[in-house]
Each structure stands twice: as structure tokens, then as C-alpha cells.
Simulated assay, not measured.
Amino acid sequence: MSAAVTAYLLLGSNLGDRAALLAAAREQLALAAGELMASSALYETAAWGREDQPAFLNQALAVRTTLTPHELLAHCLATEQRAGRQRLERWGSRTLDVDILLYGPEIIDAPTLTVPHPRLAERRFALVPLAEIAGSVLHPVRHTSIAELLAICPDPLAVKPWPGR
């Protein structure tokens, strides 16, 4: 077991009851990974990478965990599987996607895990909810706050607060 660290996760869904899938994932990850410290509002955005699919709901979580990064990844993947996730095509529609955006100040470059998420600074749908709960946190590679990354993000896709339940 490692020392407790705050990890930031991004949940996303564009199939089925998106809000219910995110709520179930929040509960499962909090039980498996540790203490849920914060969760952003839900945000809706057009699909990134492939525009011919339904809009996504996204939410960022801050989890205080003693799991190693790879143990946390295993729980993220298991949570996706329980939600019926099928990996049929890159950037395709999915019931649930769980990404590790940050794991404390660590930089990880392993065959199965890269942290910080390699495209975090390019994705408004990840930065908006993350900035809500961790705007002052520094990106460990860019040495820039999440709020500053959001301010200069080149992604043109609108990210709107979701008015649903």
C-alpha cells in the first residue's frame, strides 16, 4: 500500500442513462479507491474526435486513495466493465469511460498508463470539470495550473452545465 494521494478522474458517458451511469461509477470508485473528496457538476459536450455520435456527459472526481496508480487503473477499468463498456473503436460511443487525469504530482509513462493524461491540456471537456474542483492544482509536466490550461485550451467544443437531475 502506498501513502495517500489525491487522484483526479474523469467520468464520461454517451450511451444509455448517462447520468445514472456516472452516479453508479462515482459510488463504485469511492468504495474501491478511497475517499471521494470532491465531484464536479455534470457537463455536456459534443463528442471529441468523432462527431457522429451522441453528446457526452462528463464529471471530474477527486479521490483520496492509497492505491498505486496501476491498482487505481484496474478499478477504473473494472468500473467501466460493470457499466457494459465495449472497446470497439477509438473514440467511439461508450456507456462509461474513466480516465486518470492526475495522480498527485506523479509523472507516469508506462505501457498501460500515462499520467498526467497525455491529452488533458487539449480537451475542454476534461478541463472544465477539473478546473471546477482543482483549478489551482499544477499540471506536473507543464507546471501550469488547471485553470490556466483551461484559459488557453485550443479545443473549440462547447462544454455546458447539464441541467438534468
Score class of each variant (00 low, 15 high):
A38P: 08
V63N: 01
T144R: 15
L42M: 10
Q59H: 04
R87N: 01
G135A: 06
D99H: 11
L130A: 08
A55K: 10
S136W: 03
L149I: 08
S145A: 15
A134E: 03
A55R: 14
A78H: 09
D109C: 06
E89P: 01
S40K: 08
G92F: 14
C153P: 15
E71D: 12
L113E: 05
A25V: 06
L96N: 00
A23I: 10
M37K: 05
R124N: 12
A121P: 13
V63Q: 02
V141E: 10
H139G: 14
A32R: 13
L157D: 05
L67Q: 03
E89R: 15
A110P: 00
L102N: 01
L42N: 04
L77R: 10
P69F: 06
A126Y: 02
L29R: 08
A134Q: 08
D97N: 06
L127Y: 00
T112R: 07
A74S: 14
V141T: 14
L72N: 04
A74M: 09
C153L: 07
H75C: 11
G49K: 10
L157W: 09
L102R: 01
T45D: 05
L150W: 02
Q81M: 09
S93T: 10
P129E: 01
S40W: 05
W91K: 13
L57E: 03
V128E: 02
R123H: 08
E80R: 07
L150C: 13
A55F: 02
L31M: 11
T45W: 05
L157P: 00
L138T: 02
A24S: 14
L149D: 05
S136Y: 02
Q81C: 02
S40V: 14
A47F: 07
L102A: 03
V63G: 00
Y103T: 11
E27H: 14
E51Y: 12
P129R: 03
E35R: 14
A131Y: 03
C153S: 11
T95I: 06
L42P: 08
E44R: 15
M37Y: 01
Q28N: 12
W48Y: 14
G49N: 04
T65I: 08
R142I: 02
A134C: 11
P54S: 13
S40F: 06
A134G: 15
S39K: 05
V98S: 04
P111N: 00
P156D: 10
L120T: 06
A110K: 06
L29W: 11
R82I: 10
L127V: 06
D109K: 10
L67F: 09
L31T: 13
E80Q: 10
I107W: 04
E106I: 00
V115Y: 01
E148Y: 00
E89Y: 12
I133N: 03
G49C: 07
T45N: 09
A126E: 01
V128I: 13
S145Q: 15
V115L: 08
R123I: 09
S93H: 09
W48D: 08
L102D: 00
L36G: 11
P140W: 05
S145L: 15
L130W: 00
T95C: 09
D97V: 02
L113F: 01
I100D: 00
T68A: 14
F56I: 13
W48S: 12
L57M: 06
P111G: 00
A32E: 11
R142L: 15
S93N: 08
E148N: 14
P111C: 02
A24H: 12
I108L: 11
G135M: 07
N58K: 11
D155M: 10
A121R: 14
A74H: 13
L138Y: 04
E51D: 12
P105Y: 02
I107H: 07
